[in-house]
Amino acid sequence: MGKLTIGVFSSLVGGTTLDFSIRLAKAAKDKGHDVYVWTSGNGTMLSKTGQRAFKDYSYLAKICEELAAKGVEFVACEACAEARGYHKEDTFSVFKRHSMDWYLAKCCQSDKILHIGGE
């Protein structure tokens, strides 16, 4: 099995790109791959704790918890999160926070990288 890193820069609310990315992570994990998810820019919205499920907005917290329990690693760009007022104490429990060099290193160490751009 391979190592897959997904870098996603799109926001949780306003489109379904992030939904697609997380479902892609699930599909890869279900096939047995090691999966790493990097969120940057507006994608860091996913790392904010306290998301509530509404039918009119994307809600990915539950699937992220399930994937984290299976070993998917979720990391948010610390600077992008801080710029948006998402501080360490606001971080969703499945997320770690690192600087951008973590993503570049994972790009180097993964078999495949899927870089999914933002708005």
Partner: peptide
């Protein structure tokens, strides 16, 4: 950030 990626490499 490539300048500091070595800490993870």
């Amino acid at each position: 950030a490539s300048q500091t990626a070595e800490i993870y490499l």
